[in-house]
Amino acid sequence: MDLSPVWLTLKLATLTTLILLLIGLPVAWWLSKKRSLFKIIIEAIITMPLVLPPSVLGFYLLLAFSPQRGFGKWLNDVFNVQFVFSFQGLVLASVIYSMPFMVSPVKSAFQQLPLSLSQASYTLGKTQWQTFRHVLLPNIKPSLLTATVLTFAHTLGEFGVVLMIGGNIPGVTRVASIAVYDSVEQMDYASANNYSLILFAITFVMVIGVFIYNKYQVKSPLE
């Protein structure tokens, strides 16, 4: 069995999760503070991939980053970067697609912390960053872990959006979920079974791990 789709999937999920930790944490923090119309719009955009058919998102990304015109052409001409049918394209699509899985649980966790925690830290002379780093972040650890695992697991399971922007190039964009589909198309049920089993096992172990860590406090993924 060709294991490269599995490795590619794990690489994609790891990179996506790391990028989303970097972007998602500050975004979630920012969204958790005072509400404004602007924030509501941003949050709605971040949440869209949850309800939008992945093929629609993939289609728009394909249009936006097409190297033949507009922004995609500019990226290609100036930086020689191509997002369509490339691994970096998969990363970009996954980051957008999995963002609500990182942002929503972390945002809720920040909102559930009493306001007085940050206020106490400020009166001790601590900056917003110090407060974030030493007070807020350590106190949302379980939610952060849940969000990280969900993001990773969700990226493992991507199909539509990945197929649209990445296609099915072996070793480059052919991730495990696409390999399953491809194997079935070719009537190679044994390979499809193997890929499926690996994906199932990894995701199951991760989800059960989170539930055990959170001491059986089974929470909705978007809580």
Partner: peptide
């Protein structure tokens, strides 16, 4: 001035202790 600049000691009614 920000709370940091005022540097007052504050005891909160809910204590506002850091659980971590």
């Amino acid at each position: 001035l920000t709370p940091q600049q005022r540097n007052t000691g504050f005891v909160f009614q809910d204590y506002a202790l850091f659980p971590n």
